[in-house]
Design a binder for these strands. Sequence first.
DNA 1: ATTGGTGCAAATCCTTTGCAATAGC
DNA 2: GCTATTGCAAAGGATTTGCACCAAT
Lengths: 152, 152
Amino acid sequence: MTEAHGHTTRRDPSRAELTHLLRSRGQRVTPQRIVILRELRRERRHLGADDVRQAISDAVPGISLPTVYATLDLFVELGLVRRLHVGGGVTLYDGRIEPHQHARCRICGEVQDVDGAPDDAALRAEAQRSGFAVEQVDVLLSGVCQRCRNAG
Amino acid sequence: MTEAHGHTTRRDPSRAELTHLLRSRGQRVTPQRIVILRELRRERRHLGADDVRQAISDAVPGISLPTVYATLDLFVELGLVRRLHVGGGVTLYDGRIEPHQHARCRICGEVQDVDGAPDDAALRAEAQRSGFAVEQVDVLLSGVCQRCRNAG
DNA sequence: ATTGGTGCAAATCCTTTGCAATAGC
DNA sequence: GCTATTGCAAAGGATTTGCACCAAT
């Protein structure tokens, strides 16, 4: 038995990180927050707010969607997760912090990670020419994923 | 008088283009479509669906939002305009076709154009390694625009 | 004991849908 | 005249808000 039925305690690197960040801002460490962050870090898929709620419904049975939204907003502000705006008004959350970009299949809608940072020097320079202070660069590739190419 | 109160007729390059595209697909050339495309081509800002309706409310007084949405969807499919998903679930439409990217101010939300194509060779290659067929690359810069930097 | 966080219910916002009337072709 | 397109009204789905209760510090 490795660690069985994921409970909130026990060696969880994301938990210490979270506790520290929240405490330093006078905010509270709640089970909801612990579980949501752990889920985002564990899951390699990209989750919407309701996906998150479903994914943790065992660990935190009665959690409400407003709480999930509030928590995700907080995590984005803390820099713990990335918010992703893919097509169709869909908003997803990504627990991976390492620099990487995203590719969205126009057939099935699935979003996959693409490792690597964009070579954005030229675009940055161009934006800064007009006085825009660039803080972040998001790249979204669109196309057709392997599975849909095989199916189609 | 250059050409005064923009009416739908008279030398409008976008109109001929639109007529041709629609006819070739057995679709109809309506005043709503003509005016919406002309507005998107003329306006250098990026417009949401309701912005479009307001912008053309003089030319097409009774136009409904569902019609605006349907028309924008059609134009995106025809490749006449680009759909932009910027933060906050906001969807904007861009009548400029030439390759360019976008920068969104995190303070005021304004979206400005950034000329130039991304140097995306490395990311494309990485995505294709996993069987993903890249068709399009969208880059969204985030940061603070000139005006908000001065104000702040 | 304080007061930030949660859950609930309802409100809001954007977008889509169903359908009868209208207008391109 | 045929049928795509429109406008209206209403539905739908995602996210936010207000407030009373609860629980982390």
